[in-house]
């Protein structure tokens, strides 16, 4: 018998269940792209059959970090850049949880970049949504790791001297097994990509373009956008690492020229998740570890039985 009966609960799920009673209206600025992520998640989660209490949404700090204030699941609003290590461990402790991590571009590609690389490398079975608005929003408009070269801000008044980071390429090289980019202005694609990401057994990274109408007027609204799967101008195989890498590079190159390319970039279906890898080497139990603490029949090993090696 499980101690976590919200997990695997088969029932009809109403979309409104994901809207909290406290502060049902998010406090993001009017026109903020973050609304698009929230809406897409609220649509996607019921469609993949997940109830609010079997989902753990782990966020970082920034406007994006407030996602779980407005999405009524179990939530952990962590600290700047550290959503992924918290999320990873929750998944290891109870692999039956549906874990969704989220944060901004500063959070995930800047201060938390190291965690991003290693989470992707290890291929934890989770979804990671990066709200990419190419700016620090909540601290009022400073240059972020994805801000375009030349972008002027209060902290880089003469324009950034740095080339922006390439989030999709970095993700692929680090080892993510699902990489996509979508945009808040493209709600249907966003929903479908989130569903695929959740159902993907491995680290699914979504670089989610979220326009910041207050602090990043240069980026406009990420319109018009092009879906690389639907457009006849692009033809590549998402299962082919080399073709995916080329397509990612082009997508990153043209973004700051005003061409917004979105879609699925890389999908590796047969790669084992980290949980499976760890179980394969015998360093992870078959049953969720969190269940054991509620199992009255569980046998707990004692150090007393380890003492032979010390005698």
């Amino acid at each position: 018998m499980s101690a976590f009966n919200a997990i695997g609960d088969e029932r009809e799920i109403d979309r409104d269940e994901y809207t909290p009673g406290v502060e049902p209206q998010p406090t993001w600025c009017p026109g903020c792209g973050d609304f698009g992520v929230l809406k897409a998640l609220k649509q996607a989660l019921p469609e993949v059959g997940k109830t609010p209490e079997e989902v753990l949404t782990v966020t970082g700090i920034g406007c994006s970090g407030k996602l779980n204030s407005y999405l009524d699941t179990y939530g952990f609003h962590t600290i700047h850049g550290r959503a992924l290590p918290v999320a990873r461990a929750a998944k290891l402790a109870n692999p039956d949880l549906e874990v969704v991590a989220a944060g901004g571009d500063g959070d995930g590609y800047g201060i938390g970049g190291n965690h991003f690389i290693h989470s992707a490398r290890e291929n934890h079975d989770m979804t990671y949504i990066v709200f990419n608005n190419e700016i620090f929003g909540l601290t009022k408009g400073q240059t972020s790791p994805t801000s375009p070269k030349g972008h002027k801000s209060k902290t880089q008044p003469s324009g950034s001297a740095k080339t922006p980071l390439r989030p999709l390429s970095m993700s692929l090289n680090a080892g993510a097994s699902y990489v996509a980019r979508t945009a808040a202005v493209n709600p249907n694609q966003a929903k479908e990509i989130i569903k695929e990401a959740i159902e993907h057994d491995g680290f699914a990274h979504i670089d989610f373009l979220t326009q910041c109408p207050t602090w990043n007027k240069d980026a406009r609204q990420y319109v018009p956008y092009v879906d690389v799967q639907e457009s006849d101008d692009y033809d590549f195989d998402v299962h082919d690492r080399t073709e995916a890498a080329e397509m990612m590079r082009e997508t990153e190159d043209v973004l700051n020229e005003g061409t917004v390319l979105t879609g699925r970039y890389y999908v590796e279906e047969d790669r084992p998740s980290y949980t499976q890898e760890k179980q394969a080497v015998g360093e992870m139990p078959d049953q969720p570890l969190a269940e054991r603490y509620f199992d009255d029949d569980a046998e707990w090993e004692r150090s007393y039985d380890l003492l032979d090696r010390h005698k």
């Binding site: 753990l56 782990v58 952990f76 962590t78 550290r82 290590p85 918290v86 999320a87 990873r88 461990a89 929750a90 998944k91 290891l92 402790a93 109870n94 949880l97 190291n114 965690h115 690389i117 290693h118 570890l289 969190a290 603490y293």
Partner: peptide, 20 residues
Amino acid sequence: VEDEIAAAALAVGASHAGVK
């Protein structure tokens, strides 16, 4: 893990999910 920030954050995450 990758660094000590992650190490302590993982312990927090595992504890949050119900493991000592």
